[in-house]
Design a protein around this nucleic acid. Structure first.
Lengths: 223, 223
DNA sequence: GCATATTTGTCCGTATGTATA
DNA sequence: CTATACATACGGACAAATATG
């Protein structure tokens, strides 16, 4: 019975609910600061409160929602400090992965595909798609390190960053300029100069951070 | 009512249950491969199945327990592949953190304290304590990067590694030799040569990995 | 400052599907 | 192949905490 909203035909359990909520988060359907009522969201997704609470637990662990005891679950509002932390982490991980990568690693193909998809999105002015593709490019860089745990960790941090992007206006300015810069990084890497690629990436990330922080400060004068 | 076993009078909710199970795991009360029956463990901890399932969700997210759909929750049995991955990660993260650290970082004090505690444990032949202190030393190295998210990630990976150590015999051989090597790393670092410290750490970790993998292969001929 | 409504936190009972003896 | 055990998931209940008027 039930299970109208969530398509429970698959193999996994109420874990599907977590994926569903994750999708609502990155698509901006649920916005930072919003309270997620157990009864309301449970009814919307067609699951019981118990199942929903299990899903909440996983999302809270990833930092996408925040649990306030006896108050409820809220969509996490990224702080300036968390954005600074995330970019420090990205420089730490991505540059190192690029620098130490073995030449001819299959992830290079994924990097190229991601850039092509980002270009497609740019043609359609679909900046959300450009943002997703750019993130796929960076995930491919991380995968150069050949560590499943590092990949999972980066995926999680990406989702958190995605939440922050969603808070901001001017999506074109946030995503558009980096498509070609990604290409430069890839060319340096495939040209056999990982050190140069890492340097380009470092400058790139630092600029991206400045742009993001400026947009954040502009849209959230309160903070 | 109830709540005899878990001391729920505090502020946190059934989250306490997760901490309790984590404690049982690192203390070896629950061993890898063991199935964690919802009803049995729930009764033992004095909580309902729903509450327990919420706690399981968090632990599964950390990799300490494994969820097999329709089968139940099991204490994760670390595989050879996961150990290789964890050591690759440790070299990736710890060496980089050490190399890029700013001189005079307060974490240096924590590194020194950890070494002293490891020596105390060694005097008492308390190899579990030595293992904990050694891990605290490495956590301090990671904290040189000044990233809360990286700290949390490393804490999680450490717990997983701890699980593997618990599977093995010969705890003295696994933990004892590294107390002095930690000191050498610290001395190189505080002597103003982070590159040398990183090199020492890299060799150290590679040897530790070989020792661990050998012990694993010896105790688990099946794998 | 107080009474009330809402929501969370936690438990129980139970129906259903899946895996295993 | 049948039977049993168990996980899965739902709905309902109630106390405690919180928000509201």
């Amino acid at each position: 019975m039930n299970r109208q909203g969530v398509e429970g035909r698959g193999r996994a359990l109420g874990e599907t609910v977590g994926d569903e909520i994750r999708r609502l988060l990155v698509e901006g359907e649920l916005v930072p600061g919003q309270r997620l009522s157990e009864s309301a969201l449970g009814e919307r997704l067609g699951v019981s409160r118990n199942t929903l609470r299990e899903a909440f637990r996983g999302l809270a662990h990833e930092g996408l929602v925040t649990h306030r005891p006896n108050r409820g679950v809220f969509v996490t509002t990224p702080s300036l400090a968390s954005l600074v932390d995330i970019y420090r982490l990205r420089r730490f991980i991505e540059c190192q992965a690029l620098r130490e990568a073995v030449p001819g690693h299959p992830a290079g193909q994924r990097m190229r595909t991601a850039i092509e998809q980002a270009r497609d999105g740019r043609e359609r002015q679909d900046w959300q798609a450009v943002g997703s593709s750019n993130m796929a490019f960076h995930a491919a860089i991380v995968s150069l390190a050949d560590s499943p745990r590092l990949d999972a960790f980066f995926r999680q941090v990406s989702a958190e960053l995605r939440l922050a992007f969603g808070m901001l206006s001017d999506q074109e300015w946030l995503h558009g300029p980096y498509v070609e810069r990604n290409l430069h990084v890839l060319e340096a890497f495939e040209g056999g100069d990982p050190a140069q690629a890492a340097t380009l990436l470092e400058q790139y990330l630092s600029q991206s951070e400045r742009t993001l922080l400026a947009a954040y400060a502009r849209d959230n004068p309160a903070d």
